[in-house]
Design a protein around this nucleic acid. Structure first.
Lengths: 123, 123
DNA sequence: CTGTATCCCCTCAGATACTG
DNA sequence: CAGTATCTGAGGGGATACAG
């Protein structure tokens, strides 16, 4: 499996390439939430308690640029923006499910204990 | 899906937990190579042309500490050390296959071109 | 409401040198 | 052959302030 270049970066294998597209702390959580319904910026923000304003904004921009979500702006005041998952984005969902299932099993094996769910607002 | 703590770090979901165990540039490539045969340190080194001495060493240590590989030292001169995948490590293989397949598809869609395979030694 | 711009820290990963 | 230690750089991600 020879190396290859994308966006000026050298990759060694397809896994590395994939994880650069959908990895990081927030991309999968966002796609996961968009899997069944379009959401507004503020809805996503509310649904991802720990994400910062800056991260949500920049990650959405990346996901849009690489075709995993689309962005629809309503010219109203105050602004309204909806994010929708694309076909390409939908193809990430089963990948997330596999990793998620594996992670859940690992957690059990490692005896991970939850912190006692801060449900609504936290931080 | 409430948050939880492991090893003093706060996680938001199982995916994040999983990727902290098997993510990064080198963990999956190493497990992938060990999937069918045990390998010596130097064999792994040879098979992963871009990895540095330090990274191979430290990543193997982490994989061992979390039960994905075992390490067998032969008390000979010069030293001989063999790494073998564990049952837990084997359960990572299908996860890698899924990500790998997805990454390969993405690469095609993105029109990624290979750099003209430096095959054996490089760098 | 949605979004950008700064500043800053911390961790991953590479380069290099040294050891049993 | 296998492994550790030190230094360094790049970038992901957080806090905060400002703007249309």
């Amino acid at each position: 499996m020879p190396d290859f270049i994308y966006d000026k970066k050298l990759y060694y294998n397809p896994v590395e390439f994939a994880m650069d597209r959908i990895g990081g702390t927030w991309k999968m959580p966002i796609l996961w939430r968009l899997r069944e319904k379009k959401m507004r910026y503020s809805e996503l923000k509310r649904d991802l308690p720990h994400i910062t304003h800056k991260m949500l904004s920049s990650v959405l921009r990346e996901l849009e640029a690489e075709g995993f979500v689309t962005r629809k702006v309503y010219p109203v005041v105050p602004p309204k923006v909806e994010y929708t998952i694309t076909r390409r984005g939908e193809r990430v969902i089963p990948v997330i499910e596999v990793i998620r299932k594996f992670g859940t099993e690992l957690m059990r094996e490692f005896g991970v204990k939850e912190t006692g769910g801060t449900r609504g607002q936290q931080k």
